[in-house]
C-alpha cells in the first residue's frame, strides 16, 4: 500500500478522493441540476472571450470615425449601428469589454485581498483589530457609496487605476464583514481546536484552517460584487469621471448616446447598455454556481 517513495514530499493533499467525481463531471452535474447556472457560465465564457479577443475580431477600428456613415441604425454591415462620428458601435462594445472586465477583476481582486484579510483577522483575533476594522467599515458605509467613489476619483485623479482603487474601497465593508462573520463562527470549531492541539501557531491556523473554509462564501461575494464593480466603473465614466472619451467604454458610450435617444437614435445608448446589463446579470447568477462548484459538501 505504500505508494510514496521516501524522498517525495510525503503528504499528498489531493484535490479529490479517488471515489469522488472529477471537477468536470461535477461541473456538468451542477449545471444539469440548475440550468440557470449553465446560462451564467455560458455568458461568462462569452464575456471572457470578448475581453481576450475583442480587439482582434472587431470588424472595424473602434476609434476610426467615418462621417458619411454617421448615425445609421443597425444594418448588415454595422450590426449595432453607428454613432454621431460614424464609429461602428458593435466594434466599440466588443473592444470595451476588455477595459470594463479588467477594472472589475482588478478591483475585486484588490478588495478580496485587503477586505478579506482584514475581516478574517478581525473575526479570528477579535479585540482591538476587530474594533479597528469594524469602525473603518462603518465609516465607509456612512457615505453614499457612489458619491464616495466620485470623491475618491476626483481627488486622486482621472485614471483607470484610480477607478479600480475607488471601486475596491467602496466594496471593502462588504468583504470585511462577510469574512469577519465567517471567521468568527469558525474560531472555536472543533477542527480549529484540533489544529491548535497539533501545535499550529495562531497565524498558521488562520491561513490553513479558517481561510480555505470561507473561500466558498467569499467566491460568491466576489461574483456578486463583480457585477457591481462593472456598474460602478460605467457609472463613474457616465458622469465624466474615470475613463475619457474617445476610449471605448460602456459607461461613456451610454452617456454619449443618451442625448440622441430623444431624436430617435436609440441604438447608440441601447447596445452598450445591453452589454452592461448582460455582464451584471451574468455575474449575479454566477454566484450560486460558483458556490455549488467549490463547496466540498456538494461533491457526494
Amino acid at each position: 500500500m505504500s505508494e510514496s517513495s521516501g524522498v517525495q514530499p510525503a503528504l499528498k493533499v489531493r484535490q479529490q478522493a479517488p471515489s469522488s467525481p472529477g471537477i468536470l463531471t461535477h461541473a456538468i452535474h451542477i449545471i444539469a441540476e440548475n440550468p440557470v447556472t449553465g446560462l451564467a457560465f455560458g455568458l461568462f465564457t462569452l464575456i471572457v472571450f470578448a475581453a481576450l479577443f475583442g480587439p482582434m475580431i472587431a470588424p472595424f477600428d473602434p476609434l476610426a470615425s467615418n462621417t458619411t456613415e454617421a448615425l445609421k441604425g443597425p444594418t448588415r454591415v454595422h450590426w449595432f449601428g453607428t454613432d454621431q462620428l460614424g464609429r461602428d458601435i458593435f466594434s466599440r462594445v466588443l473592444v470595451a469589454t476588455r477595459l470594463d472586465f479588467t477594472i472589475a477583476i482588478a478591483s475585486v481582486a484588490l478588495v478580496f485581498f485587503l477586505g478579506g484579510l482584514a475581516g478574517v483577522t478581525a473575526g479570528y483575533f477579535g479585540g482591538w483589530v476587530d474594533k479597528l476594522v469594524g469602525r473603518v467599515a462603518d465609516t465607509i458605509m456612512a457615505f453614499p457609496l457612489f458619491v464616495l467613489a466620485m470623491g475618491i476619483v476626483a481627488a486622486l485623479g482621472n485614471s483607470v487605476t484610480n477607478i479600480i482603487i475607488a471601486t475596491a474601497i467602496i466594496n471593502f465593508p462588504l468583504y470585511a464583514r462577510v469574512a469577519r462573520a465567517e471567521a468568527n463562527v469558525r474560531r472555536e470549531a472543533g477542527f480549529v481546536q484540533a489544529a491548535r492541539l497539533a501545535g499550529n501557531s495562531e497565524w498558521r491556523l488562520l491561513l490553513t484552517q479558517i481561510v480555505p473554509n470561507i473561500m466558498p462564501i467569499m467566491a460568491v461575494q466576489m461574483s456578486l460584487t463583480m457585477g457591481y464593480a462593472i456598474l460602478n466603473a460605467a457609472g463613474l465614466s457616465f458622469i465624466g469621471l474615470g475613463v475619457r472619451p474617445p476610449t471605448p467604454e460602456w459607461g461613456i458610450m451610454v452617456a454619449e448616446g443618451a442625448s440622441f435617444i430623444v431624436s430617435g437614435e436609440w441604438w447608440i445608448a441601447f447596445f452598450p447598455g445591453l452589454a452592461l446589463m448582460i455582464a451584471v446579470f451574468c455575474f449575479n447568477l454566477l454566484g450560486d454556481g460558483v458556490r455549488d462548484l467549490i463547496d466540498p459538501q456538494r461533491r457526494t
Binding site: L11, K12, V13, R14, A17, A189, G190, F191, Q193, A194, A195, L197, A198, G199, N200, Q209, P212, N213, P296, Q297
Partner: peptide, 21 residues
C-alpha cells in the same frame, strides 16, 4: 464531524500534528 477540517483529506488531518512536531 465538527473536529475535522472539511477541506482536508483524512491523511492530511492525521498528518497535521506531525507537520509541527
Amino acid at each position: 464531524t465538527d473536529s475535522l477540517n472539511p477541506r482536508f483529506t483524512a491523511a492530511r488531518a492525521i498528518a497535521d500534528p506531525l507537520l509541527r512536531f
